[in-house]
Design a protein around this nucleic acid. Structure first.
Length: 597
RNA sequence: UGCCUCGUGGUGUAACGGUAGCACGAGAGAUUCUGGAUCUCUUUGUCAAGGUUCGAAUCCUUGCGAGGCAGCCA
């Protein structure tokens, strides 16, 4: 079985945006000879579509400019982080870049810590990546916590040159002083005393919150983050990666810039909320007399999509209270949820690429993601017949025991996908949406006394509508134009519509999960109560009748159930109970027309 | 409130002092053994007011609006 993967997922023209322009200019000016980016998630949750944007940017730039993108666990807060998230994060990254930037993935040998070295008479630490398509099997992501030793040395260096001090104020006092721009009474502590107290903080002599290490910058700065920000806090907690080795942990601002430096990152890309931190990022690095080139932080707008919430905190709530079935629920905008729903990595990548990168905090329409999925799947997905809400059709003039094997085209957009056979017999199922006894105007499908073509089969006419006591249609008795089959004498007769069908005797049953948007408000959290806008009909489960070949459907492959939608096999699927997820509906101009009247 | 950043059709973006373009969406039509796909056409925009300039979406000023930050979170 072949699929047109290469045609359909061929890389579009290299994108250009303000970040790539900066990178290009830095290369042109000789500021750097190679680019090195990084993707630094905190291991406290699952990756989502917003991370996908960051991943595509970091790896995309590495790809376009011949560099590497490190994956780094930004794990400086043992209170929030857990080892269980590390594996899912790395798996999601690998899945997303697979076949696209595998050879740009920067990892490190298991257990390796940065090397201390002398460079131009200066003390330095370097943690170089191993990258490439063939990494050793035990290669692992970088960890900010691997740099706790070097970071501590840098802290002492700041103390020694009078740029950091140990502060004894309580959290409340610290806040108050920073808000009002008042200097800490401990700000002018002698260097020796600071060094001694810092060592004792590290040694565990003080309880949580008793003391902090603070940068000595400018309490009058209009930027709050320059008002002597905290560098270290005391936390007597086990860390998922460094165990009980430390009881003081560096803050994000202190650890992040140094992690970037230690890994030789050239361009450190992050979201807009870190914009006000950039002066601090630069101040720390510039205060340390470092021998190598310094990384540069560049901020871009995070991704927002309508009718969805994306932040990790909110997604965690949905998982926690059972609003969804888990992090990988196909309604979730997590990478794992999108994957389970049937969306491919290449479709996510093309979506993100089409978005572009700017500093404008935009709200992207879900329709853009739909378009990326549909335009790819139209070219790659094999067609199948499935009837979601069956009505029985009996062809009264078709021989009782006859079964024909009709040839069906797998993908009209890609002839090399070949064909398959589908059994046809006297009793069939068609979708209830394809029959109306008294239809509205512009309804082209089957009606009482009307005609329709069964795809690859005959034109049929509805002679009789059979109903139960309550008036529900239970069966349609139809006659087939036996010469109208593809290639037959009357096959060129025109009927308005061709519908799909499944032979009743040969049908395979399946559970089909129909997903709709999780929220029914374009910005669910705009009033701070996103759960009030959960869509109660975001999941509908039906029992479908499928053509026999769907019994052999494979995981991770998109199928188009003709005239309906794209579907993917769910991992819950068993041989005796097939389960399909609706990935994305086909465009439905009839639904639009029906809505009008 | 202070500071930072950002405002281009309904949405996402391009134009780097010189014809406001692309994609999505929407609408109309053609075609079709998927009301899918494909093809053609159409619609709608530089937040406002001043200024600089031969010429401003672009540079300057002011105003307005939006987002972010003001954790011992990241």
């Amino acid at each position: 079985m072949t699929t047109p993967t290469e045609d359909a997922t061929a890389a579009p023209a290299a994108p250009t945006d303000f970040i790539r322009e900066i990178v290009m200019e830095d290369l042109r000016a000789g500021k750097h000879t190679a680019v090195h980016t990084r993707f630094p998630p905190e291991p406290n949750g699952y990756l989502h579509i917003g991370h996908a944007k960051a991943i595509c940017l970091g790896f995309g730039i590495a790809r376009e400019f011949g560099g590497v993108c490190n994956v780094r666990m930004d794990d400086t807060n043992p209170q929030k982080e857990e080892a269980q998230y590390v594996d899912s994060i790395l798996a999601d990254v690998k899945w997303l870049i697979s076949g696209w930037a595998d050879d740009k993935l920067g990892l490190k040998p298991a257990g390796k810590s940065p090397e201390a070295r002398e460079l131009g008479g200066k003390h330095d630490f370097l943690q170089a990546p191993i990258a490439g398509a063939r990494l050793p099997s035990d290669a692992e992501p970088f960890y900010a916590s691997d740099y706790f030793g070097p970071i501590f040395e840098f802290a002492m260096q700041l103390v020694r040159c009078g740029k950091a001090y140990v502060c004894d104020m309580t959290p409340e006092q610290t806040d108050e002083y920073r808000r009002t721009g008042k200097e800490s009474p401990f700000r002018n502590r002698p260097v020796e005393e600071n060094l001694d107290l810092l060592a004792r903080m590290k040694a565990g002599e003080f309880p949580d919150g008793a003391r902090t290490l603070r940068a000595r910058i400018d309490m009058a700065s209009p930027n709050m983050w320059m008002r002597d920000p905290l560098l270290y806090r005391i936390r007597h907690l086990e860390h998922h990666h460094t165990a009980a080795q430390w009881c003081i942990y560096p803050m994000y601002d202190f650890a992040h810039c140094l992690s970037d430096y230690i890994e030789g990152i050239t361009h450190s890309l992050c979201t807009l909320e870190f914009e006000v931190h950039r002066p601090l990022y630069d101040w720390i690095l510039q205060s340390l007399d470092l021998p190598r080139k310094l990384p540069r932080q560049i901020e871009f707008a995070r991704l927002n999509i309508d009718y969805a919430v994306i932040s990790k905190r909110k997604l965690l709530q949905l998982v926690g209270d059972g609003s969804v079935r888990g992090w990988d629920d196909p309604r979730m905008p997590t990478i794992s949820g999108l994957r389970r729903r049937g969306i491919t990595a290449s479709a996510i990548r093309s979506f993100v690429t089409e978005l572009g990168v700017t500093k404008y905090p935009s709200l992207t329409e879900y329709a853009l993601l739909e378009h990326s999925v549909r335009s790819e799947f139209n070219k790659t997905a094999q067609r199948r017949f499935a009837v979601l809400r069956p009505i029985r059709v009996v062809l009264t003039n078709y021989p009782r025991d006859q079964v024909e094997q009709l040839t069906a085209i797998n993908n009209p957009e890609y002839p090399a996908a070949g064909s398959r056979t589908v059994p046809f017999s006297r009793e069939l199922f068609i979708d209830s949406a394809d029959f109306m006894e008294t239809p509205p105007p512009k309804y082209f499908r089957l009606r009482a006394g009307g005609e329709v073509r069964l795809k690859y089969g005959y034109i049929i006419k509805c002679d009789e509508v059979v109903k139960d006591d309550r008036g529900n249609v239970t069966e349609l008795r139809c006659s087939a134009d036996l010469g109208s089959k593809t290639g037959g004498a009357t096959s060129s007769r025109k009927v308005k519509v061709t519908i799909h069908w499944v032979s009743a005797a040969h049908a395979v049953d399946a559970e089909v999960r129909l997903y709709d948007r999780l929220f029914n408000a374009p910005e669910p959290d705009i009033d701070g109560d996103f759960k009030a806008h959960l869509n109660p009909r975001s999941l509908e489960i039906v029992r479908a009748k499928c053509e026999p070949s769907l019994g052999e459907a494979s995981l991770g492959v998109p199928y188009q159930f003709e005239r309906l939608a794209y579907f993917a096999l769910d991992p819950d699927s068993r041989e005796e109970n097939l389960v399909f997820n609706r990935t994305m509906t086909l465009k439905d101009t009839w639904a639009k027309e029906a809505k009008k009247s």
